[in-house]
Simulated scan of single mutants.
Amino acid sequence: MADVKATLGKFGIPEFSWTPSSGQVRDNTVIAKGLRDCHRRLRTGKLAYRTCAKPRSGIGRIGKMTDFEDETGAFENGEAPDELLSMQIAQRLRTLIATDELKPGERLRERTLAERLDVSRTPLREALKELASDGLVVVLPKRGAVVADLSAAEIAEKLDVLGVIEAFGGEAACRMATDPEIGEIRALHYEMHAAYERRDRMNYFRLNQAIHTSIIAAAKNATLREVHERLNRQLYRYRFQGSVTSETWHTAIDEHEVIIRLLSAREGAKLGDFLRRHVHSTWEQLAPQAELLSEAKDAQ
């Protein structure tokens, strides 16, 4: 038990729990078995953590399940445990950027961020490098790292390209996806709808993103997945901001109903066309605000 706790602490994981499956007895033998399994998965880099409702400390303090990506997705390729903490930090920073807790143009001071996230500066630097490669962070001479600040024109361009990518992915998924894969995407939609009914915006957006990335994954095209992941990350903040109002939130739910129906029917051409328009609708929601911000920035 002590060894497992020490290992978890080494990687900055504040807390975790393990619950025996139905019919098991919660005794020392069963708990030890569960802990050994968690320890094994952690050693192979395949265990991600869920932050708790009242996390003790560390990067988990940012909130309960605030990641916008599937928490296990980042470790599917079996990254070494030494990389796990920096990847977790990078995902937390993406969330802070998307929710405007780190605003466009804001300088990212390493010492301040390290204290805020309760992590050392070495994995933080690695996380910032990852965000820079994503285009979420820009490194400027004599200023260090700052949150990327896209102009209205840049946002529109990226959303246009993302729409084409998702359209292609949707068409391919209709041909390549297995029935179980489509069933899983449908299940994600039901979970997203439940988050909508609870007005749980964080989980709603996380599941929304999971649906889109799962459709791309079902297309079974590694290059498509890589390009989509990179561009989608650059647009996290803007897609999240586009889902803020109640009106756009309800519209998105209705549009996802259509996406799931077309995918289930394997109507590739129709799904591709609808996904292109679905992504473009994000810009229609963002355009007025983005253009006002660009005008204000130009006036400075």
Rank of each mutant, 00 (worst) to 15 (best):
residue 115 E to N: 15
residue 145 A to N: 13
residue 119 V to R: 09
residue 144 G to S: 13
residue 154 E to N: 01
residue 118 D to R: 13
residue 157 E to F: 06
residue 140 L to C: 04
residue 100 D to A: 06
residue 89 I to Y: 00
residue 147 V to Y: 06
residue 48 A to N: 13
residue 114 A to H: 06
residue 45 G to C: 02
residue 93 L to C: 09
residue 100 D to L: 10
residue 90 A to Q: 02
residue 154 E to F: 03
residue 68 F to N: 08
residue 125 R to V: 15
residue 133 S to W: 03
residue 46 K to D: 00
residue 139 V to H: 12
residue 145 A to M: 06
residue 132 A to P: 03
residue 91 Q to D: 10
residue 94 R to E: 09
residue 92 R to E: 04
residue 44 T to R: 09
residue 152 A to K: 06
residue 127 A to V: 11
residue 116 R to S: 13
residue 49 Y to E: 05
residue 157 E to Q: 13
residue 86 S to W: 04
residue 158 K to G: 02
residue 70 D to H: 13
residue 75 F to W: 04
residue 70 D to K: 06
residue 88 Q to P: 00
residue 122 T to G: 03
residue 111 R to C: 01
residue 107 R to T: 15
residue 152 A to R: 10
residue 151 S to E: 08
residue 130 E to C: 00
residue 64 K to W: 12
residue 85 L to Q: 10
residue 146 V to Q: 12
residue 89 I to Q: 00
residue 128 L to Q: 01
residue 103 K to M: 08
residue 114 A to R: 09
residue 103 K to P: 09
residue 134 D to N: 09
residue 98 A to D: 05
residue 112 T to V: 14
residue 109 R to D: 11
residue 93 L to K: 05
residue 59 I to D: 02
residue 43 R to L: 13
residue 73 G to W: 07
residue 155 I to M: 14
residue 133 S to R: 13
residue 160 D to S: 13
residue 41 R to E: 08
residue 57 S to N: 11
residue 55 P to G: 03
residue 48 A to R: 08
residue 117 L to F: 08
residue 61 R to F: 01
residue 149 D to F: 11
residue 147 V to H: 07
residue 109 R to C: 04
residue 119 V to Y: 07
residue 132 A to Y: 02
residue 143 R to I: 07
residue 101 E to K: 14
residue 86 S to K: 10
residue 80 A to F: 07
residue 103 K to N: 12
residue 50 R to Q: 15
residue 68 F to S: 04
residue 139 V to I: 11
residue 140 L to I: 15
residue 47 L to V: 06
residue 90 A to Y: 00
residue 140 L to T: 15
residue 141 P to M: 06
residue 90 A to S: 09
residue 154 E to H: 03
residue 156 A to G: 10
residue 107 R to C: 05
residue 91 Q to F: 02
residue 82 D to L: 09
residue 53 A to N: 05
residue 143 R to D: 07
residue 68 F to Q: 08
residue 118 D to V: 03
residue 63 G to D: 01
residue 43 R to W: 00
residue 120 S to G: 15
residue 115 E to R: 15
residue 124 L to R: 10
residue 97 I to P: 04
residue 104 P to G: 02
residue 116 R to F: 06
residue 72 T to E: 02
residue 109 R to L: 05
residue 54 K to T: 10
residue 55 P to Q: 02
residue 44 T to G: 01
residue 48 A to T: 14
residue 136 L to N: 12
residue 107 R to K: 13
residue 63 G to F: 01
residue 58 G to E: 03
residue 119 V to E: 03
residue 73 G to S: 12
residue 81 P to M: 07
residue 158 K to H: 10
residue 82 D to I: 12
residue 111 R to G: 12
residue 48 A to W: 11
residue 46 K to T: 11
residue 131 L to D: 05
residue 139 V to W: 08
residue 144 G to A: 12
residue 129 K to S: 08
residue 62 I to E: 11
residue 68 F to D: 09
residue 82 D to R: 14
residue 88 Q to C: 06
residue 120 S to V: 01
residue 58 G to D: 06
residue 89 I to L: 06
residue 141 P to Q: 05
residue 74 A to L: 07
residue 131 L to P: 05
residue 65 M to Q: 14
residue 111 R to Y: 06
